[in-house]
Design a protein around this nucleic acid. Structure first.
Length: 543
RNA sequence: GGGCCGGUAGCUCAACUGGCAGAGCAGCGGACUCUUAAUCCGCGGGUUGAGGGUUCGAGUCCCCCCCGGCCCCCCA
């Protein structure tokens, strides 16, 4: 299990009494699932260290003193006027008290709570304003040339003028557009340039001000390095966009070691989290916000989805198809491993089970995960479509004992998930729909005979699902029809497909007159059309 | 141009520091006269993308190449 491997390596290569884990995000719009992967990853490391009896702090910073460099699609166009200003100084897109950055930050906090992460939150705007960055800003100004040189050297970028300090313009409030042109040890001289960046227009103001206590911010690579130093960060992973060779992490790493005199935190480069193959991007608005993932998947599954694959492996989550039932099955297997319900026959199998067990451990969203019955998701989805079937009764029967409160709530959760899945993501063949007119299907003479006799049975009286089920079995034996042929005849006549939910219950749940009419019609229907014209396309016959 | 990750059964993927290539699903066959999308049993002839190399032994390590996804060289 990769978390254990990392934790072991951290303990071995960076033996320390206390660890400080850090993660951060610029809250420039709805925060996407990729960032949630980072939170979960760091939270797992925290958990692993705690289990190894190493206390650690988990910090999460919102870089809300970063300039707004684009407008999220959801925000009104008039927000363009704020481009270049710190996110903490831009009004909230929803109105109200908080800032733009605060709004999206708080939204993200809600999401990670769902997946069981509870980092300590800090906001860089507050750190700047309260002077926490002052010392590093002074260093950055004093050694600006060295920092620029490091940037050039490590990144190989020709761009000369990436000064490590960006003053906040006293005239227009922008921070993304300013350039330092002088530093006397107390104040910085700066220009707010209209053409410094393409995404914002500086006001042209030229001025002199104190860079401290919020008067400036560090350019982001220098800021990253400074934060490591100020917060004493010892472990920090980052997405691959930062972790590429010569990328921002390499630059920040050289800066923190050569200028700020602090070792680079233990790095963990992790891969993207894609949804339906598309990259998550905060600013372009493409991709799935983290909040949406939690709406698609229950919390434990959302976390499991991020914990199960190796952190260097891309996650490509596509909620359609069999993805969710499969994920549920794997989750259940991990749970079974965790609760000691599985036994390996070979050493390799035992290892794998232990692995699954660890995965479940790290996937828990709260401390205690009750042991309870876990009815297979696909089965829940199937039975749920039978109006007369009570899932709780079925589960109790299966268990052979009354359900506990945990059993019931787990089942309830699965029913909700199944309803959502069937409504939005399930492939057609998982759904069934009674056809309102006789499907054009091919039935053998024996099958028609069977359906005709079944009509006579139905005509006798009102049957319960179970009784009807028994009658169906009696009838198919009496006629000498194979079970498969008998049942598929029913399904074909009603659903237009050759399989379906438990036939007795299905018929009992339908209007009796309708059932009678359909059975009679099917029993006399001639052979029509190609067999596969009605195959696998439920609903195609509905008018 | 540089970097990361993938390529293993029809599909989705496993295989700890090299040590007999495995699961799930799908498929096929069979059983089951309370549940035929249930349950149970059985069934896998894979050049592990190609080619070299190291090794007693390579899916695993090294080199090179091909294919796919992505990242960096704008911003943060």
């Amino acid at each position: 299990m990769w978390v254990d491997v990392i934790v072991e390596d951290v303990l071995k290569t960076r033996p320390q009494d206390r660890y400080v884990i850090n993660d951060a995000k610029s809250p420039s719009g709805p925060i996407h699932v990729g960032s949630l992967r980072g939170v979960v990853l760091h939270d797992c490391i925290l958990r692993g260290l705690a289990a190894a009896d190493r206390p650690a702090r988990f910090l999460f910073g919102f870089d809300d003193y970063d300039p707004m460099d684009s407008r999220p699609v959801a925000a009104p166009a008039e927000f363009d006027q704020y481009l270049g200003m710190p996110l903490s100084e831009v009004p909230s897109p929803a109105g109200g008290r908080g800032s733009f950055g605060r709004y999206y930050g708080l939204e993200f906090i809600e999401v990670w709570k769902h997946v069981g992460a509870h980092p300590e939150v800090y906001w860089t705007s507050e750190m700047y304003k309260s002077g926490k960055f002052n010392e590093t800003i002074r260093t950055a100004l004093d050694r600006a040339e060295d920092l620029i040189q490091i940037d050039r050297e490590i990144s190989g970028s020709q761009k000369a003028d990436r000064h490590p300090v960006q003053p906040v313009c006293e005239h227009c409030g922008r921070v993304g557009t300013t350039v330092v042109v002088g530093w006397d040890g107390h104040q910085v001289e700066y220009e707010c340039r209209p053409d410094k960046v393409t995404w914002a227009k500086g006001c042209g103001h030229r001025g002199k001000r104190s860079p401290f206590d919020g008067g400036s911010k560090l350019q982001y690579k220098a800021e990253w390095a400074a934060k490591w130093r100020i917060l004493g960060v010892t472990i920090e992973g980052a997405g691959k966009d930062h972790m590429t060779k010569g990328g921002s992490h390499d630059v920040a790493s050289a800066m923190v070691e050569r200028i700020f005199n602090h070792p680079t935190p233990y790095p963990i480069p992790y891969e993207w989290f894609l949804v339906g193959g598309r990259k998550m991007s905060t600013s372009t608005g493409i991709g799935v916000p983290a909040a949406e993932l939690v709406a698609i998947l229950r919390e434990e599954l959302a976390r499991f989805l991020m914990v199960r694959p190796h952190y260097r492996q891309q996650i490509n989550f596509d909620p359609t198809g069999e993805t969710i039932p499969n994920l549920y099955d794997e989750y259940d297997r991990a749970a079974a491993a965790f609760f000691g319900e599985l036994e390996g026959k070979t050493p390799a199998e035992t290892d794998l089970i232990r692995d699954h067990s660890r995965t479940f451990y790290y996937s828990r969203t709260n401390g205690e995960q009750p042991r309870c019955i876990r009815m297979r998701f696909a089965k829940v989805a199937n039975l749920m479509q039978m109006p007369t079937v009570n899932l709780f009764d079925v589960a109790a029967k299966e268990k052979g004992a009354p359900l506990t409160a945990q059993d019931r709530s787990e089942l309830q959760q699965r029913m909700e998930d199944a309803r959502r899945w069937l409504g939005s993501y399930a492939p057609d063949h998982y759904r069934f729909q009674v056809q309102s007119s006789m499907p054009r299907v091919e039935l053998s003479p024996m099958q028609r005979e069977f359906l005709g006799q079944l009509a006579a049975v139905v005509a006798q009286q009102e049957w319960s699902g179970e009784e009807l089920h028994n009658r169906i079995h009696d009838l198919k034996s009496q006629i000498g029809l194979k079970p498969k042929d008998a049942f598929s005849a029913i399904y074909l006549a009603f659903l237009g497909k050759d399989s379906g939910p438990q036939a007795g219950w299905l018929l009992a749940s339908l209007d009796r007159a309708f059932v009678l009419a359909r059975l009679r019609q099917a029993s006399t229907a001639g052979v029509r059309g190609p067999f596969d014209s009605a195959q696998g396309r439920p609903g195609s016959e509905v008018r």
